[in-house]
C-alpha cells in the first residue's frame, strides 16, 4: 500500500476564500464585459470591421 502525503499544504482561511471568490467574480465580469464590447463593436461597425485604417 502506498502512503499518501498527509501534509495539507496551504489551507485558505475563510477570509482568504472570500477574497479569492470576490477576485474570481471580478475576473468573470471583466471577461464578460470584454465579450460584450467585441460583440457591440462588431454590430456597430458591421462590414467596416474588416477595413483597418493605418
Amino acid at each position: 500500500m502506498v502512503d499518501h502525503p498527509t501534509e495539507a499544504g496551504i489551507v485558505l482561511t475563510p477570509e482568504e476564500k472570500r477574497r479569492q471568490r470576490q477576485r474570481n467574480i471580478a475576473i468573470a465580469f471583466a471577461l464578460a464585459g470584454l465579450c460584450v464590447i467585441f460583440w457591440i463593436v462588431t454590430i456597430v461597425k458591421g462590414a467596416a470591421i474588416l477595413q483597418r485604417p493605418m
Partner: peptide
C-alpha cells in the same frame, strides 16, 4: 511570508 504565497487582494 503568507501574503507572498496567498493573495490577500480584494477587487
Amino acid at each position: 511570508n503568507r501574503s507572498a504565497l496567498v493573495s490577500q487582494a480584494e477587487p
